[in-house]
Design a protein around this nucleic acid. Structure first.
Lengths: 152, 152
DNA sequence: ATAAAATAGTTGTATATTGCAATTATTTTT
DNA sequence: AAAAATAATTGCAATATACAACTATTTTAT
């Protein structure tokens, strides 16, 4: 029935979210950090160099939250800060060598994991799964009501 | 290419996770609570009545964390606690009338949202999307290395 | 029947996270 | 030159988190 589709969709997504949450917590813990710190490291690592406000936008968190999180990672020697020479309001945030090592390890572990997951999907279904996720993502985005919200 | 499938899969999942994170934060904020509190309310509401340890298991958090979270919601009048008569070590946790109202509102909003998302998927693709999510979930679970971890 | 072990939940401790408001420093606009 | 805007930090206060230790209760072993 049509009005059960959304329900089942949500159930599947919630189970998926939960399982991936466990994955990430375990991964973060193995690397001696919290989940939030792990998210920050991954976002910085992926961007290479990023401003604080950009990072806040990427992670959808308040800039004050990110400022403190980055401060904490800076104190641990994982992150570096450089005032932008052209515009001294900006701070350019990137990973230190140590930070890159941590990032690399997490990245490898997650990459390996998702390759294994992908390989566990029946071969003739793999393209369908990817296509379906894209369709779902498009639908999710289509139903945003505004830039940061999803409800009316 | 085979070794790009996992990469693309992960990218899609991360974008999806992010968008849904924004959705939930907005929803929680609209109901005057934090995301974590929202998770707790939804878990209790769905279970009807649940023990603290069960709740901790459902949310994959330490029982001490849940104990304090439930305490906070109790103080707000959203949650009730009853010592189990048969075994006084147990506390039976459920929602108060007020808690049920909050739960009902969040549930309706999320249900509506996911119905809209589902309806935005091209009709001939809907079954495929659901099937694909199920396949993906199975693959994710197949690659757990232990009960609470996903890596080795 | 009693003691030991196990379980459920709470509390102490310490750290981390979070966002709003206010602040400082800098750049842009008027 | 002054006002406005922007980036980031800090103050404030609440919430969240997990480990360890604890209390109360039940189960298991003796």
């Amino acid at each position: 029935m049509e009005n059960r589709g959304g329900h089942y969709l949500r159930e599947l997504l919630e189970m998926l979210k939960k399982d991936l949450f466990v994955l990430e917590k375990t991964e973060a813990s193995c690397c001696g950090m919290t989940l939030s710190q792990c998210h920050v490291i991954l976002a910085i690592g992926k961007a290479g160099e990023v401003s604080l406000n950009e990072l806040a936008g990427l992670l959808n968190l308040d800039s004050s939250t990110i400022s403190r999180s980055v401060d904490n990672l800076f104190n641990k020697g994982l992150v570096s800060r450089k005032v932008d020479e052209r515009d001294r309001r900006y701070v350019r945030i990137s990973l230190t060598e140590m930070g890159k090592e941590v990032y690399g390890e997490i990245e490898r572990n997650l990459a390996d994991y998702f390759e294994r997951v992908f390989s566990s999907i029946p071969e003739e279904k793999r393209h369908q799964v990817l296509e379906s996720l894209k369709l779902l993502l498009d639908a999710v985005r289509e139903n945003r009501c505004c830039e940061e919200g999803f409800l009316w």
